[in-house]
């Protein structure tokens, strides 16, 4: 029971009913998200830069594609994936770099950031499971990412008049939702490895480079060597990109929509379970070794 000094009190959330505990965890996730927004907005120029950068980085991809193809529409692209518009193709693919960065960097470094603030022990002493903090951080990253995508899409719409099927938006978002769950699993692994290794960014860097190569961001999956295509099929962003392009601009995926959803659902289970297990093991290791507050 909590005394607020007025004689009134609130019930203790631990050892209470499941719905009450879930509400407690949900409010902790929301609070983590709000706290991150407040911290981020203390540097408004940096925040503005984070919105403009993705547009600036997208343009070389677009111009490079147009220069190689000799125009916006490519008959060769149509032969490979059934659509000709290279600008829409690259733009939709490119927004997924942000989702990869979210898992590898924003989520991956969530606990590292708390270590650097000096607050990791204070938050870990709270009565919520520790994966709640990575979930709150991923919520902030996802919202941030959607804001960046919105700016990118508005820019491309204004300059190149992006051609997409608006009816495909809902199924594309459903696929992205599943992809984000699977990416959360990868983010959990990255978050825990940064607790274990002082130079955890090296792992993020290496994995980020690998994912950039195998994920069909600016080129169709079919141009990759066969073994790379197989690696790409274990990466959730591959399905997010292929399905989004399929729903929004009619790209042929090489497999059915049902197959894509089933495969992503399986990847969700595999990555989330793997992520939780790795996180629990490393959390236990750091509490045994006493390295939790080291950075």
């Amino acid at each position: 029971m909590t005394n607020d000094g007025t004689g009134q009190s609130t019930a203790d959330p631990c050892h209470s009913s499941l719905p009450r505990r879930l509400r407690h965890y949900a409010s902790a996730v929301w609070a983590e998200n709000i706290k991150e927004w407040k911290l981020e907005l203390t540097y408004p120029l940096d925040f503005l830069r984070s919105l403009i950068d993705p547009v600036v980085y997208l343009l070389p991809y677009v111009f490079y594609g147009i220069a190689l193809v000799g125009g916006r529409f490519s008959p060769n692209l149509e032969k490979l994936v059934g659509t000709t518009d290279i600008v829409s193709f690259i733009t939709i693919g490119y927004v997924f770099i942000g989702f990869m960065n979210m898992a590898l960097w924003a989520m991956g470094f969530s606990l590292r950031k708390e270590q650097m603030y000096g607050t990791l022990e204070a938050v870990f002493a709270a009565p919520v499971p520790r994966w709640i903090f990575t979930m709150g951080m991923s919520m902030h990253s996802i919202l941030h990412q959607f804001l960046m995508i919105l700016v990118q899409l508005l820019f491309i719409l204004a300059v190149f008049s992006l051609k997409v099927n608006p009816l495909g938006l809902l199924p594309a978002l459903a696929m992205i939702g599943l992809m984000l769950i699977a990416l959360y699993g990868i983010g959990m692994i990255m978050a825990s490895t940064t607790l274990l290794f002082k130079q955890g960014w090296l792992i993020s860097e290496a994995l980020g480079s690998l994912l950039m190569v195998v994920t069909p961001i600016a080129y169709p999956l079919a141009v990759l060597p066969l073994f790379m295509q197989k690696v790409a099929l274990a990466v959730p962003t591959t399905y997010g990109i292929l399905a989004s392009r399929h729903f929004l601009m009619g790209e042929q995926m090489g497999f059915s929509v049902l197959t894509a959803f089933v495969r992503v659902a399986v990847l969700c289970i595999v990555w989330v379970v793997f992520g939780l297990v790795v996180f629990a093991l490393i959390d236990r290791y750091t509490r045994r070794s006493g390295t939790l507050s080291h950075y």
């Binding site: 607020d4 609130t10 959330p13 609070a31 983590e32 204070a122 938050v123 009565p127």
Partner: peptide, 17 residues
């Protein structure tokens, strides 16, 4: 406010405390 949410305090009870 942030730490209150981690300890399950929300709404008016949190504000009062």
């Amino acid at each position: 406010n942030f730490f209150a949410a981690l300890y399950g305090l929300t709404g008016k009870a949190r504000d009062r405390r």
